[in-house]
Amino acid sequence: MGFEVNRFQGEVDEELVCPICSGVLEDPLQAPICEHAFCRECIQEWISRQPTCPVDRQNITSAQLRPVPRILRNLLSRLYITCDNASYGCTSVMKLDSLSSHLEECEHNPKRPVTCEQGCGLVIPKDELKEHNCVRELRALIHSQQQKMTDFQQEMAEQRFQINEQKRELQLLKDFMRAMRISNPAMRAIADQMERDEVLRWSNSLTRARVTRWGGMISTPDDVLQQKTVHNRCLLTSKMLKTMMQNSVTTNWFQYGAHEKHLWSLFR
């Protein structure tokens, strides 16, 4: 719905008046062909009943409506209008484009949110401050919080029930597979394979551990640590083989020397 014409100072051009509500255009839209302008709420309600232009009866749909030109919006924004709270004592006059920001701060606005200073500290509309009862409002707030807590507990209980049902079904499936494995050799192989696949899936889902300090037990090391471990093992094996070869050569040498001394003693 548009703004009442008597709220504006001076004359208002008829091009700025909505043909449907006879008020000054509010959030206007225009028809695509005839370019007649209407309030957004007025024209949408009109089209919902009959899809024609209210002025020349041309066919029109809601999707065909578009914003009015900038020059029309500028003319509307330059109009001076009185405050919506004039009946409550506000005497301010401002441009139409400043009306919304003024209403948020207007001291005479009966719906302006204010803080209760009687002790509860709740934020309520100004026109409800006289009938406000701190005890009643706090009780209502506590009741609403308790209701939310009760709903949350019920939801948690339902989820626990579903989890327990799933665990029970899983246990029944395991018992069934165990019974089939005992009674049927073919099913035993299938069950064993399923268990191996389950263990493999579980092991593959584990993340590799990151070594942050030396010492202690290391589980599932990363690739770099594995390569380093293999390299160290190769070096250790190489050193052991080298030592064994040296010991072997030394032992043979001593054995050969003792045998030669024995032969010389025979020929003397």
Results as ranks from 00 to 15, higher is better:
Gly2Ala: 03
Glu4Arg: 06
Glu4His: 04
Glu4Ala: 15
Glu4Asp: 05
Arg7Glu: 04
Glu11Pro: 10
Glu11Phe: 10
Glu11Met: 13
Asp13Tyr: 00
Glu14Lys: 11
Glu14His: 06
Val17Ile: 13
Ile20Val: 06
Ile20Trp: 04
Gly23Lys: 00
Gly23His: 01
Glu26Gln: 13
Asp27Gly: 01
Ala31Ser: 11
Pro32Leu: 00
Ile33Cys: 09
Ile33Val: 09
His36Ser: 03
Ala37Glu: 04
Phe38Ser: 04
Glu45Ile: 04
Trp46Asn: 11
Ile47Gly: 06
Gln50Asp: 12
Pro51Lys: 08
Thr52Ala: 10
Cys53Glu: 08
Pro54Tyr: 06
Ser62Met: 06
Leu65Trp: 01
Pro67Phe: 01
Ile71Asp: 09
Leu72Asp: 08
Ser77Asp: 11
Thr82Gly: 10
Ala86Asn: 01
Thr91His: 00
Ser92Ala: 14
Val93Lys: 13
Lys95Cys: 08
Leu96Ser: 01
Leu99Val: 14
Ser101Ala: 13
Leu103Cys: 03
Glu104Gln: 14
Glu104Gly: 02
Glu104Met: 11
Glu107Trp: 10
Pro110Ser: 03
Arg112Glu: 09
Pro113Asn: 03
Cys116Glu: 04
Glu117Phe: 07
Gln118Trp: 09
Val123Ile: 14
Val123Gly: 01
Lys126Arg: 15
Glu128Gly: 02
Leu129Thr: 08
Glu131Pro: 05
Cys134Leu: 00
Arg136Ala: 14
Glu137Lys: 13
Ile142Phe: 05
Lys148Trp: 04
Gln154Trp: 07
Glu155Ala: 07
Ala157Glu: 15
Ile163Val: 10
Ile163Asn: 02
Gln166Trp: 05
Lys167Trp: 08
Arg168Phe: 13
Leu170Arg: 12
Gln171Cys: 04
Lys174Arg: 15
Phe176Trp: 07
Met177Arg: 15
Ala179Thr: 10
Arg181His: 01
Arg181Asp: 00
Arg181Cys: 12
Asn184Val: 01
Ala186Ile: 03
Met187Tyr: 07
Ala189Phe: 06
Ile190Ser: 15
Ile190Thr: 15
Ala191Ile: 11
Ala191Leu: 02
Asp192Gly: 05
Gln193Trp: 10
Gln193Asp: 13
Arg196Ile: 10
Asp197Asn: 15
Glu198Thr: 14
Trp202Gln: 15
Ser203Val: 09
Ser205Leu: 13
Arg208Gly: 09
Arg208Val: 15
Arg213Met: 02
Trp214His: 11
Trp214Asp: 11
Gly215Tyr: 08
Met217Gly: 00
Thr220Pro: 01
Leu225Lys: 05
Val230Trp: 04
His231Phe: 14
Cys234Ala: 08
Leu235Gly: 07
Leu236Trp: 05
Thr237Asn: 15
Met245Thr: 11
Gln246Val: 08
Asn247Pro: 00
Asn252Ser: 05
Tyr256Cys: 10
His259Val: 15
Trp264Tyr: 09
Phe267Glu: 12
